[in-house]
Design a protein around this nucleic acid. Sequence first.
DNA 1: CGCTCAATTGAGCAACTTCAAAATTAGTGG
DNA 2: CCACTAATTTTGAAGTTGCTCAATTGAGCG
Lengths: 233, 233
Amino acid sequence: MEHHQEGRCENCIIRQLNALKTLSKEELKKISDSKVTKAVKKGETIFEEGERLNGVFCVRKGVSKLSKSSENGKDQIVKIATKGEVLGQRSVVTEELTNLSAVALNDMEMCYIPKRLLEENINDNSAFTKAVLVKMAEDLRFADNVIVNMAQKTVRQRIAEILLYLEKNFGLDSEGYIAMTLSREDIANVVGTAKEACIRMLSSFKKEELISTQGKRIQLTNKKALNTIVKGL
Amino acid sequence: MEHHQEGRCENCIIRQLNALKTLSKEELKKISDSKVTKAVKKGETIFEEGERLNGVFCVRKGVSKLSKSSENGKDQIVKIATKGEVLGQRSVVTEELTNLSAVALNDMEMCYIPKRLLEENINDNSAFTKAVLVKMAEDLRFADNVIVNMAQKTVRQRIAEILLYLEKNFGLDSEGYIAMTLSREDIANVVGTAKEACIRMLSSFKKEELISTQGKRIQLTNKKALNTIVKGL
DNA sequence: CGCTCAATTGAGCAACTTCAAAATTAGTGG
DNA sequence: CCACTAATTTTGAAGTTGCTCAATTGAGCG
């Protein structure tokens, strides 16, 4: 993980995407003076479950997976974080060890902001605190919905869902494939199933002409049908 | 749902359990003047998924389940809320419709606090906002862990887990049974499985002498073994 | 061009679901 | 307190879905 100082928070557009947008110019300057830009290559670990974090990571570029590994050695991906997301926020707020690991899914760039600066703002600036709170509340709703999906939907439904999610959030590349390619294993780990089950489901979608593939890339050819799958059986 | 005014927040011990503990005497007085005490009987609905809430419910007595129903008609219980929990906090913070339904699992008593009063404190009082934030962050960690459990653990493991959870959080009655009795269906809905699967697993636990039952009441007779089940297979 | 890792396919097995019926328990009013 | 009804729990059996292990094919990279 390389790191160097560069760019000013005051001029950074990314902060519009998160709670940092509520800070004043002076507050941003303070942060800007202490922050460090870090580049992380695909596959590298940003932090690991159980680590103590002394700051948070504001994602400027690239995508990261937040996952937790269970006793049986399997990984469960709990969240996919992109531009604007702040990694490690939860553990800084509660002053706990991290509950999840963060790994880069492609080359990333982010700003490391020391904990101390955030804490100052959380303690004094209630607009900032509220913005963080709202974000956390949204994450919680999202997580609750994932719980319901995991419990009640079939693997078929959940895979259809994540395909639609990926296309919606990352769009298409020049050839019409989903711009974000996850390995089949990662998809399986989001959906909470075995790699093979995931692959088989994708094959079956292909046979039904709902998707087409090119290497690991996936193109959705019948979104309507996929949507129907997500809802009913 | 009956409701009447009674008791003063300033003297209420329950508030020590949640973010309200950060408020000053004056702030509490204001809340106390507007709050309403509500009694809810077992089985009654406190609010339903998709409702707009104009306040939150602070649980003083009793237990409630927070659940979401999916298209196939099944319910998923996402959380069990007891004394001190504030229901509806999330949707008030984000000003969204409720994402979950709340139903009383036994006779309850709670205080209804109008939204407006909370908002005032969230906007001006950063100690309060932070307390709410920390609570939300803890809920989020809990939810993330539930996701991992749902995805990676077997029904057997999850049932063992909830039995231990219930005993730990509610203790025992005079005869040594878990003081909180959930219907088998509710247990199944927490664990995300079919009622029958849940019942069969409990029978199998009984045969293995890990638990014994009396009607719907359950007694844990070998917690060590249950703990082992939760961890490995 | 060969090496390595990821993707795919096959087959057998275990876990879970569903529908249906029987047994038990809890709740209600007399 | 008892009897009766409604609700819940329990058991059975068949059918699906998903998991695991092992072998094969394919793709990307130096």
